[in-house]
Write a protein that binds this DNA or RNA. Structure first.
Lengths: 111, 111
DNA sequence: TCCATATTTCCACGATACTGGAAATATGGA
DNA sequence: TCCATATTTCCAGTATCGTGGAAATATGGA
């Protein structure tokens, strides 16, 4: 049952603050951001953010590495692309109606 | 802020039963399935299923149309592909790391 | 060693979600 | 009209989630 992971990832992203955190980390790129900066950017107390980061981290969507006093969080691109592929293949069974618009978007967005 | 819809869709899919309902409806194709059959397939009481269908429906992921005594539910392919595109473009900013695997999956899955 | 900084863990409160019983609504057939 | 079927709405109980104060932990520097 591979959908257990997908479920935890959907769950993690299905919340305003956490989606915002993830988007911020994507924008930040491979360098990532320290937890404190994320908290400041979102206007959330550090302990609250910490539990949200923990949920994203358990879902494999972000990763944290200590660097000095800070912990630098980065988005996990493999995880999000895995989720997207799950939605396309396992969930939607590669249906043409789903695939085609995604393909078009992929082409115009980056590929 | 277009992400409000995406959030409600992520939320709707972030639950075991509802994800199962959606997958079942995708498998059922354009003919869809009556609510009763879905409830039976998942082993969920009809009123419980009804509220779950309602959540999926409010998120635009499924649609119900009365046909005689039954209400036939169908998956909304536009909605799910819209969500996938949102994750790729708005959320992940068309990053190559996200796009490429999705592109590859799309190619092998259907296109 | 002592202190400041960065983050997490512990804990509890309020809010929201999931579930299913009971009753209501809608449809079709006798 | 009356009844059976299909589904929804109403409602309440339990569980899970989101939040943030207070304390704990980890690191680096003086």
């Amino acid at each position: 049952m591979e959908s257990k992971l997908a479920l935890s990832q959907l769950s993690a992203l299905a919340q305003e603050n956490r989606l915002a955190v993830f988007r911020l980390l994507v924008k930040a790129g491979h360098d990532g951001l320290p937890a404190g900066d994320i908290a400041a950017a979102l206007g959330v107390p550090p302990n609250t953010l910490s539990s949200q980061l923990n949920i994203l981290s358990n879902a494999g969507l972000v990763e944290g590495n200590r660097q000095g006093r800070s912990i630098i969080y980065t988005a996990n691109y493999d995880a999000i692309s895995g989720l997207i592929v799950f939605l396309m293949e396992d969930c939607c069974q590669g249906r043409e109606e789903v695939c085609s618009p995604v393909m078009a978007a992929a082409q115009s967005a980056c590929c």
